[in-house]
Design a protein around this nucleic acid. Structure first.
Lengths: 264, 264
DNA sequence: GATTTGTAAGATGTCTGACATCTATATTTA
DNA sequence: TAAATATAGATGTCAGACATCTTACAAATC
């Protein structure tokens, strides 16, 4: 395929998905999606920076900034004096370094996401939750409990914990029914944050632990007790560093293999 | 502390640790170490880019490139029109996104690294190993087996697997005795690669799994059978994408909590 | 003939200076 | 008092030049 086909000016491109982002981040995001969707094969050589600059209609420094992002996350490799290449093993799926959310994670592995045993309720924040979300003790939080499916197989048990204070728009509370309806349609909490609340999640900080499933989780995931599972506890932050959500995720270890890129 | 004290010209700084690296990477590395050693506290505001540029005696574009790296890895946060800040929770320790190696990992958590039950031998590559290291089946590989200590506590059981072909300098084989002696002194395989073989490890690609310890590993780590452990299998690559080493690491889950930064 | 050296092309890396855009604060205005 | 408006200062983007590294190929040397 010709370069002119792939690297069209960014203004002609589709979904932004990120109002706050810098142009360089948008370029990086665009190229990353080209890699993830297989339009740029591993070890392919990219056009040189001046050419990329004119193809995408952004300056060379913006191109370089985008390439730095992609290099740091393991998608491309630069060699001084030689060129820039798609990595041999770009972390295109089950990549822990990308804060994609469970829905996207399942989708990126080629399966159809879904969920069952949905429960939503409001509870006072425990000390642990209040601490991680910068709330006062017993401030109300919305808790979404779901068993996530990949092609109808139970693979993740997840809890999304959000300060109730965030569930309002123009000082008007959003009824939980509406949240529920949205989730059934679009699956993803992140999408709800962006499209309904106008909040962009800038990054997440995750803690990962190996566990064995005790009764409750084993039942939720439909696996034997004592099976190996991942526990990932993650706090998501806005772009000014405010914590927005806390998620607790329990992954069936048989269903996932996680990869991550480690830069030296 | 004054900025002039912290941000001295890079040429006056200590250890490079990276001949191949670009200037921007060196600047990023330098600032990262300032953060990791606590000289730059969380949420501190950095000098603005033009000032950083003149303090470090590098151009503003180099500063920006370094900041992009630090932003991607979660150490700083930039706000357009406002400034650049050390992150609220910089991933300074037990950070899976940094390819530091077990020795550094233990050291960064404040403990003294060491090892026992060292074994080194040469074996033909299995199909799995040959595949991951781009070798022919049964090519000889050097296998280093160690139980790693943190303040004399057994915390990691590790296997380092390196093609024997790499253990030569000027076409002269390096005797295993010498490798052993080096490791007892400096602990780290990575240091051996850099200082003795002149090889820089550019990045690693890791796979992580939750496991329960069976007899052999439980005994090595001195923990009960069925204890929770992490298994991390990682391939390290040179800067032209050639696989250099394969490491198998089994972490006592009670001894480590791993964090990682996930950018959206 | 084999090895080394030199040279040129092309790529990424770095520098410089200018301007654009965003944010926060202060100031003015209705 | 409250809303609109300047203003300063920060990061983001652009443009063009030059530096440095890698590769390939030709030429010189042994």
């Amino acid at each position: 395929m010709n370069n002119e086909m792939l690297f069209k000016p960014l203004s002609e491109m589709m979904g932004d998905n990120c109002d706050n982002c810098s142009l360089a981040q948008k370029v990086a995001e665009h190229m990353r999606s080209l890699i993830m969707e297989g339009e740029l094969a591993p070890e392919t050589r990219l056009p040189n920076e001046p050419d990329l600059s004119s193809l995408l209609r952004v300056s060379r420094s913006t191109v370089r900034s985008a390439l730095t992002i992609l290099e740091q996350t393991g998608f491309v490799q630069r060699r001084w004096g030689v060129g820039t290449f798609i990595a041999k093993d770009p972390p295109t799926y089950n990549n822990l370094s990308i804060n994609s959310g469970v829905t996207q994670l399942i989708r990126s592995s080629g399966a159809e996401p879904g969920f069952v045993e949905f429960m939503i309720n409001i509870r006072p924040a425990s000390e642990h939750i209040a601490h991680l979300l910068s709330l006062e003790l017993e401030d109300p939080v919305v808790i979404l409990e779901r068993v996530r499916l990949a092609n109808d197989r139970r693979v993740v048990f997840s809890l999304d914990i959000v300060p109730q204070a965030l569930f309002k728009i123009d000082n008007k509370e959003i009824p939980l029914d509406e949240v529920e309806k949205f989730l059934y349609e679009k699956q993803s909490m992140y999408t709800f944050f962006r499209e309904r609340l106008g909040l962009d999640i800038h990054h997440g900080l995750a803690r990962i632990r190996p566990l064995t499933a005790e009764a409750y989780i084993a039942e939720k995931l439909g696996i034997p007790r004592k099976s190996n599972i991942f526990h990932i506890e993650q706090v998501d932050y806005s772009n000014d560093g405010e914590p927005l959500a806390l998620t607790d995720e329990y992954y069936d270890a048989e269903a996932f293999t996680f990869y991550f890129y480690r830069s030296s």
